[in-house]
Write a protein that binds this DNA or RNA. Structure first.
Lengths: 204, 204, 204, 204
DNA sequence: ACCTAAGCGAGACGGTACGTCCGGTCTTCCG
DNA sequence: CGGAAGACCGGACGTACCGTCTCGCTTAGGT
């Protein structure tokens, strides 16, 4: 197998990298993913196409990193409070609060278009999908795992429940409604999901 | 606004339509969605490109109809038993059975590649997404709604539960694991989902 | 060799034929030859494409016949005086008069565009070229042959001169200037040509 | 008016340019002008279509330049003897010699097909026509003007004759017979033309 | 007066080429 | 030597026409 003689990352232009991220996000937001082109990103960033191909393998790669970078920036700006599900002792309340915040984020157009675009690419392009899940989705889900384990310690969740599966009861429905537009998403909706998930739909 | 003078559908070539469906599905299965081209479909179907553009607006449109057609054919071939969730009186068993069958279908490569491709396109292209949901997804989900309502009548599900939301507790997690590859899917997994959904994760 | 089962000319629609001629000439005049299409002619004439292909082999054929027809109509309208070079006894004057009239015709846009188009097609398409020459050009040139022969009888032209070649001395220069735009054409110019042709450019 | 941001000619690929010329001439010679396509030229030259459209505006433009280039090459190869009409003092002999050589060239298929094609295009497309005349035809004709002027100096041609018109007496007939196939072309024919042109067709 | 076979308008069809766009590579020159 | 610029080969796009092929529908004669 022939491999490119990997470029020297220490000499990489930070300015170009940032310009490319900005251009990629802007173009996706303005024109949508399919009408965003590598050529367009290069032109908008004032960068040669080769500079993009030198450091990334495809449009999807660029956007993925740009989006990760955006996430980091936002996290740094907003402070650290979001890096965990709160633990007030009231599991239902904690989950509802986080899901309400998630809804607000999902509806923020700065996130929506690139996130949706990456998710779409990830469905079809396994490599992008894996990275998307590993770097973006799974870390978020792990926070729920942590909170559920803590709830198991206090007896708020049965000990024989698998937290990684349990979290899907309320996270996946929201994800599907948002991604596939299978239904409206609202604070009431996620509240209901939490209630159903905690106590089931069968008579108690 | 300029509109094309809609072609005369009565003179449409049935042979071409079927050949196009077959070619589209075959190419998507072989090469994947992004490497499937309108030109390729036309060539494989032995059809002029214009014949595709005359009746469909895009690659996604063609594939959507081809997939719908495939579904109808399968349904016709397989008989009608699949058009409803079974109702043996044991809700948990019925749901588990249907979800196990769904898993088998999701892993059938004849379905997997085009379904995934259409779903991906639907994330990003709202029009395709709406049609995908309306024509394919929602009719399936409605079958669960029916079964849950029947369960409410027998008291197996609480009367105050919204069936359209309740079904997402077990359907959406499976959908997400399959679409986004966020985890393995197995019969055990869906059995667990049904148990959690029916009785909740909190202590009873 | 397979031959089409020649259509029955007796049942041919005269109305369609005339409409096609008119449409062809109009389109060539408006849009130029290369942008005139069989489809366009058919649409403009309110005729099916097959009706054109049934009776003609190509766009050039249609235009050629349309132009011949136009010529006949003009001739019929204008009377018969133009079907011969006048013979007043003064050869130089007769030739100059005819050439002046020819210039006026060449500059009439109703003739110019289709004539030029047909000539162009004829350069490259031998079949069209032959027909163009045989049916249009040669009959015109024959009139000069007749006049020159008459001049030979009166001694105004040497007996050993070949009239078919001699006429080219004044006709071909005009034709070339008009067709290839190699120079301006005017009454003075053709007068000069006649003088040079009659008496040569060498000292007498 | 929107204008393309003119490409940088200094970075143009000489190899591609030559390959395109060669392919264009070969295809025109083999298949004729109307069956020569930009796509075909690109494929034969091993070049992207865009490389053609970047530097030329149309098939005719390409062929015109290819033909000019061919002319230059031939001239460079053959030496400079052809860049003037010979001047032995015997005007009739000089003209006859040049016209005989011209006939040989006109019948050389390497010249015939592209020249005829360009001429045809030039009849209908004024821009091509102007360039064809300016760059190819007029420089050739100018050589006759020079020779005729020299003849006027020696008294072999009358001083009041316009050489630019006079040359058409023998050049245009040949041109027309060749282009429009209005008659056979031979050495005898051009000899006759020169005789008629010099001394006229009227009795001396 | 009816039948039937043709021409006819219409336009869908399998194709070819158009001129444009963009992907990914390669080359040139600048800092 | 990284980067900007952009020419290059390739290949798909969506459109325009080509010439062929049905469709019904007139519209004749021939019976």
């Amino acid at each position: 197998m022939v491999k490119k003689p990997a470029p020297d990352a220490t000499r990489r232009s930070e300015k170009s990298r940032r310009a490319i991220y900005a251009a990629a996000l802007a173009l996706v937001a303005e024109a949508g993913y399919p009408r965003t082109t590598v050529e367009g990103i290069a032109a908008r960033a004032g960068v040669g196409k080769q500079t993009i191909y030198r450091w990334w393998g495809s449009k999807a790669d660029v956007l993925l990193e740009a989006f990760l970078d955006l996430g980091e920036q936002m996290a740094r700006t907003a402070g650290q409070e979001a890096s965990a599900v709160p633990d007030t002792g009231d599991l239902a309340a904690d989950l509802k609060a986080v899901l309400r915040a998630t809804i607000d984020e999902l509806l923020d157009p700065r996130f929506e278009v690139p996130a949706r675009s990456l998710a779409a690419e990830g469905l079809v392009n396994e490599q992008v999908g894996r990275e998307f899940v590993t770097k973006l989705l799974e870390p978020q889900l792990q926070l729920y795992v942590d909170r559920l384990r803590s709830a198991q310690a206090t007896g708020a969740v049965r000990a024989d429940v698998d937290p990684r599966i349990a979290l899907e009861l309320f996270v996946s429905p929201l994800a599907q409604r948002w991604l596939q537009r299978t239904g409206p998403i609202s604070h009431d909706y996620t509240d209901t999901l939490v209630d159903y998930a905690l106590h089931g739909i069968a008579p108690r």
